[in-house]
């Protein structure tokens, strides 16, 4: 089993909300990446929680850039570092708004150019930093400040969009499984070329559950099959243990949905559509894992 290093690269303490899933994920991302890392952060919660100038809680170099340019910036940075013969890891740590909505063209461009960097999208399914407005990653039926009656469109399938670029490695993760997340970051950084990790990051104020349930909510998402942990290495899909178990014997999706205030007024049709979508995704991944399609 992989030993997780004790060293922390986030000094006590960030100004993230109590029980933040994004900070918990970042802890393990940085532990896996180590000291020789540059973090590129577009506008998102992570650019706010660092602290106020001239102080920062992050003990590694961080480059804060404009919303739309994270992947383009990291791609250029990595090219320059490789030209200088350095092996420094370049990691983009972007929220779902900065990935699925605003940053998607830079992401697509950088993946097409094939530069060597890791793009991590930590997905709390809304624009958390500005007060929970809907994003392309908000799931069907979720209440946000701009969809007070529940969103009427389903979540954008970002993983399929990224998979279409055929990166050498991509994976999904969740901070409720830190060892799994740690190993995936290590694996992604061992590949040359653009790699991608999509992290579901439970957000207590945005999803409207109490702060102690962050990890529980992450586990529920996986166990109900609403979030699937898998990795795609050179096109070959592997579904990870917790999700494999959930596909054999899933918990009812209602357990995950009822635990969150944002799904308060969700309609029965929306619930059944979400279940169908989750089942279809599980089926597709199982087929891909067996190499059928």
């Amino acid at each position: 089993m992989t030993e997780i290093p004790r060293e922390e690269y986030i000094l006590k303490c960030t100004s993230a909300c109590a029980g933040c899933g994004g900070t918990l994920s970042l802890r393990y991302v940085l532990k896996a990446a180590g000291r020789d890392t540059i973090l590129v952060v577009p506008a998102c919660c992570t650019s706010v929680i660092q602290g106020t100038y001239p102080n920062t809680a992050f003990n590694i170099p961080v480059y804060n850039v404009a919303f739309a340019s994270a992947a383009a910036c990291a791609s250029g940075m990595s090219t320059a570092l490789r030209a200088a013969g350095k092996k420094t890891h370049v990691i983009v740590y972007a929220g779902d708004g900065g990935t699925v909505d605003i940053g998607i063209q830079a992401l697509s461009g950088a993946f097409e150019r094939g530069t060597d960097f890791l793009y991590i999208c930590y997905d709390n399914e809304a624009y958390g930093n500005t007060g929970m407005q809907r994003s392309g990653a908000t799931p069907l039926g979720a209440r946000t400040t701009t969809t007070p009656a529940g969103k009427t469109q389903p979540k954008k399938d970002l993983d399929a969009i990224v998979a279409a670029h055929k990166p050498p490695y991509m994976a999904t993760a969740c901070p409720a499984y830190p060892k799994d997340l740690f190993q995936k970051v290590e694996k992604a950084l061992s590949y040359r070329g653009p790699t991608f990790i999509h992290i579901l990051s439970p957000c207590p104020p945005g999803w409207r559950f109490s702060t102690e349930k962050t990890v529980e909510m992450g586990k529920l998402a996986v166990r109900t099959g609403m979030w699937v942990l898998y990795e795609r290495e050179q096109g070959k899909v592997t579904i990870n243990g917790p999700s494999k178990a959930a596909m054999v014997k899933p918990l009812p999706a209602e357990e995950y949905l009822r635990a969150q205030g944002r799904f308060g007024g969700i309609s029965a049709e929306a619930v059944s559509r979400m279940k169908d979508d989750a089942a279809a995704l599980a089926q597709r991944l199982q087929k891909e894992e067996k190499g059928i399609c």
């Binding site: 109590a18 029980g19 918990l24 802890r27 830190p178 109490s210 962050t214 990890v215 529980e216």
Partner: peptide
């Protein structure tokens, strides 16, 4: 200590009360 988002619990499980935000993940898990 593993699940503490702020790493406010040390290796020997002592809580740093200067920085613990009281989220309660430790108690829940």
């Amino acid at each position: 200590a593993m699940y503490c988002p702020e790493a406010a619990i040390s290796e020997d499980l002592a809580i740093d009360y200067d920085f613990c935000k009281g989220c309660g993940i430790c108690a829940n898990e």
